[in-house]
Amino acid sequence: MTQSSGKSNRLIATNEDTLGPYYPISLCDNDSMDLTEIRSGIINKPLGEKIIINGCIKDINGNLANGILLEFWQPNAAGIYRRPDTETHHKLDPWFTGYARHRTKDGNFTLTTIKPGVDVDLETPRAPNITLTIFSDGIMRIVTQLFFEGEKANDTDPLLLSINEELRDRLMIKPDGEDENGIKKYKIEIIMAGDNETPFFDDLLS
């Protein structure tokens, strides 16, 4: 995938490649899919509601997409992302990074996290969402954003409003009962290609 830059003073980007089939599994040994614990055995917890999201990534044939690398990115319970321009934000949560990475062997994943919130101070508030990047064999990275079904803020979210209703529904994380500790569970199915394909977004150009 080459990418030409519109302005001549820019350097030509190195070509992106696929993840390939042999991304070393051990590189993710220290990555955690539990964003509610910055590390184990610490009393401090992030603010907000702890939730569990079970998901899967499927290919054009409905088979689970094995061997893919996933990255999750979300704001905290107050809707604030941890990044350079929010370093001193008063609603930044010291115990929440919002970033998780996971290499899934079989295409399934479980993310334990805090339900993302809404930053009401924004001119155009975003509905609670989680950005998901997929790195896979056979294709360069693709990116989408997942939302929570039934959220009032969904009705005015600029990204959801930019696609049609049928596509919007494919981005919805749906309630799926509770676990034995009363923690709310959710589920989502991502379809990379074909019927009911998940909408993906152009993070390079747009």
């Binding site: 941890r82 064999d137 409003l161 977004f201």
Partner: peptide, 29 residues
């Protein structure tokens, strides 16, 4: 490449509206 056929979205990618752009720049710790 079989995997490429199985996993490449058939639909064109959707443009990200400007006011949603920031949320598509994951900032790794």
């Amino acid at each position: 490449d079989n995997t490429s056929n199985e996993r490449t979205p058939r639909n064109r990618l959707h443009l990200i509206p400007d006011n949603a752009r920031g949320s598509f720049a994951p900032y790794a710790p």
